[in-house]
Design a protein around this nucleic acid. Structure first.
Lengths: 157, 157
DNA sequence: TATTGTTATACTCTATAACTATA
DNA sequence: TATAGTTATAGAGTATAACAATA
């Protein structure tokens, strides 16, 4: 009966959802993405597009498969994303010289200028989140905890 | 030029994606949900279904609108979810007595037994996450930080 | 008239299989 | 044969508008 009492308490605790890590994580992620989407509405940039542009800027010439791997998305789903960026004149595919099956990705000149603007907007968004968290030390602590969840995760594949 | 140098450094930092809160949050949430999905594959329970059942169990008789509000989903999208639970004999709708437009939700006896099993499975999942984080104190710290992100968020509507 | 739950529908994100062109 | 990128497609999740029953 002692055991039942403990279980009952635990059940009530989890049923409140307040201590469920995945639930809180999802709600927080949605709130942060909503802020991102609102913030970047003017630049018409979605989170995935931001991530792709940032990745090309950090490593110009990367192949599509490498970016998909880095961002954890399927190569097939990267195609429309890059089509969009290419259509807006921000990025371009260049056929591989050695291996003509591959596409290396680069920012255009327009894309380079866009990155500057994107960064300025992003800084406002990120600063707002840091303030909500209570400062950069808290931000670092959060990133550290999230990294632990990621490091411990079973890699699918 | 001093200013440019600073911006360039900041750009490189953010382009590495390592300090972007939303990005890390999304990756961690996906990793945690993947663990949840694998863990609950046997019970054939998705995160949203878990949340609905937990909510009914915590507050039997709640109306659909209230649950949708609590979980942050649209009433229209709750319909199929509850249809599924009702179809499996876990939950049931009861027409409101005072207001016959409303549906109050309850667990069936099967549902009550299912909750016990669900809790046992959930405890393994949550314990695994707590271990990844480094203990309950770290879990509490993470929840606290996520709450700050949620509290500071602009409520849509 | 307004509200609860429902239906229909569309849009995004994600996953898989089959295709092409190259290797 | 195998691989990089592509196409087509299907499944979740989520959003809105219109409807029926009821208030």
């Amino acid at each position: 009966m002692g055991r039942e009492a403990i279980d009952e308490q635990a059940v009530l605790q989890y049923l409140s959802m307040d201590f469920i890590i995945g639930y809180k994580l999802r709600r927080a992620q949605l709130a942060v993405f909503q802020d991102f989407i609102d913030t970047f509405a003017e630049l018409k940039l979605r989170p995935a597009e931001f991530a792709v542009i940032a990745n090309i800027a950090a490593n110009p010439g990367q192949k599509q498969a490498a970016i998909a791997e880095t961002l954890g998305i399927k190569p097939a789903n990267l195609v429309a994303l890059i089509d969009g960026l290419e259509g807006r004149g921000l990025a371009e595919r260049r056929r591989g010289d050695a291996d003509r099956r591959t596409h290396s990705l680069f920012l255009t000149e327009t894309g380079e200028r866009f990155v500057d603007e994107m960064y300025a907007v992003w800084r406002g968004h990120e600063q707002r989140l840091i303030e909500r968290l209570g400062g950069e030390a808290e931000r670092d602590r959060l990133i550290g905890l999230l990294d632990r969840l990621l490091e411990g995760a079973v890699v699918s594949g």
